[in-house]
């Protein structure tokens, strides 16, 4: 009974079944985003079966491996929208730069004002970029990489789930602006959600995700020097 839980097929089947179910539920319950629905289903199944939740990520290595080619595949929507991207290049550059600076400054300022620990503050600075970049920056700063991954994922879920509704409320309906905001704020999660909104939003989100990763990595160079690391 216990050994089948550690067969790679168990995690893969559970994750894909939960994903498909959550997408079907999402058609009826529009407020329940598939990322939340599928995670909830998996957590319930794991708890019922007595499987340690902390070990689950290691059991579904195949899916996390496929994130690599899936990220590379974002080149296709970027390439297809090359004419529009070229036309809006100035907007892309300025807004991604503004978003990257805002991400670092607001995270640091808010954690400081809320009296968070030094470790939490350093680990949260790179939270807007996808976790592989966040890990590297966090290590270089002297933060805790596992905290950075968690912050980056929570940020992604928040932005991916509530981002479009929030942007509509603030009067932003342009797919280019929405994609840039989603990719800068919520990296891959935001891009996945933007692709569901429209292919234009998705391609600009993918572009913003890649560029904000580069810009954020570069922005930390003077911070390392300032901290003497």
């Amino acid at each position: 009974m216990q050994s089948f839980l550690h067969d790679p097929l168990f995690g893969l089947t559970l994750t894909i079944a939960a994903y498909v179910s959550a997408k079907a539920i999402h058609k009826r319950l529009r407020w329940l985003h598939p990322i939340l629905g599928s995670s909830a289903i998996i957590l319930v199944v794991l708890v019922v079966l007595g499987f340690p939740v902390r070990d689950f990520q290691g059991e579904v290595g195949m899916l996390t491996t496929l994130l690599g080619p899936a990220t590379v595949a974002l080149g296709v929507p970027i390439y297809k929208h090359r004419a529009l991207i070229r036309e809006r290049l100035a907007t892309v550059t300025v807004s991604v730069l503004a978003g990257s600076v805002t991400g670092i400054v607001s995270a640091g300022l808010l954690v400081f004002l809320a009296r968070g620990s030094h470790e939490v503050l350093l680990s949260m600075l790179p939270k807007s970029v996808s976790s592989p970049i966040g890990i590297e920056i966090s290590k270089a700063l002297g933060g805790a990489p596992e905290l950075s991954v968690m912050f980056s994922v929570i940020t992604g879920v928040l932005g991916g789930v509530f981002g479009p509704a929030f942007l509509y409320k603030t009067g932003l309906r342009d797919p280019v602006a929405m994609g840039l905001a989603m990719g800068s704020a919520a990296h891959g999660f935001g891009t996945a959600r933007s692709l569901q909104e429209s292919e234009t939003a998705g391609s600009f989100s993918a572009l913003a995700m890649g560029l904000s990763g580069i810009v954020t990595s570069l922005l930390f160079v003077p911070i390392y020097i300032w901290l003497g690391r």
């Binding site: 994750t15 990322i35 995670s39 998996i42 794991l46 996390t64 899936a70 879920v157």
Partner: peptide, 12 residues
């Protein structure tokens, strides 16, 4: 794309 992020959400 969302499917590939689910393991990270469970990890977090």
């Amino acid at each position: 794309l969302l499917l590939f992020f689910i393991p990270y959400v469970i990890g977090a």
